[in-house]
Amino acid sequence: MAGTTIVVTSGKGGVGKTTSTANIGTALAMHDKKVCLIDADIGLRNLDVVMGLENRIVYDIVDVVENNCRMEQAMIRDKRYDGLFLLPAAQTRDKTSVTPYQMKELIEKLKEDMDYVIVDSPAGIEQGFKNAISGADRAVIITTPEVSAVRDADRIIGLLEAEGIYKPEVIINRIRVDMVEKGDMMGIEDMIEILAIELLGIVPEDEGIVVSTNRGEPIALNDKSKAGQAYRNIARRIMGEDLPIMKLEKESFLSRFKKLVGLS
């Protein structure tokens, strides 16, 4: 089997790449997909904590690249799903410890027996980003509904195209339902139109994400959470399903009425 490599990236930092990588990977594993997550944020390792696997790390990606261990020795199996693995970043090294070429080679080998390889990219557009996107077949850009984040997302779309990665998709994260209802937020359609990019999904702002990160249990595991549902939907879209984008706002009586009489 030759799997698909998906890089999860963003222009602006802190918008939810690591959270999204962990949740998409977990949700794909729920569908019995064989998935390996790669933490490409060398020096600022985080995905291990979000996945709750930090105490199992022996080797890391730099060890693999430097032939200190075999790939399988560095891959950590998830606690919950047998088909889910993490290749952790090195914490005490820097971004230059791996070259884009090495990364590409590593991914080529890894995806031979995976359905999906998902790469968590570091913030920024420097070497770490170049590493993370080398070897990617698809790209998912994370943004929040803020002008600065969307602007940086646009930059990234351009850079990805320059690297031959076309048609990236976007996830708009941290959508505040109350702000959508009041019309205080940039509209999802507007953002999509301006970026001219396919929408892979929207994820609501959810305190549960912080709780789940602290516990090391991705929110996709929580079947009562809307954010969890959002990530499970995203995983199904990645697998090729054509699912409608979830409605976040509770439809008020007034808006239902307006629709009924054709006012909106």
């Binding site: 002008v147 602007r151 930059r155 301006i194």
Partner: peptide, 15 residues
């Protein structure tokens, strides 16, 4: 408002 500001910065970034 946000939309216009976004469009403005993107014109400059893209071109």
């Amino acid at each position: 408002m946000a939309k216009e500001r976004l469009q403005f910065v993107l014109v400059q970034d893209r071109i």
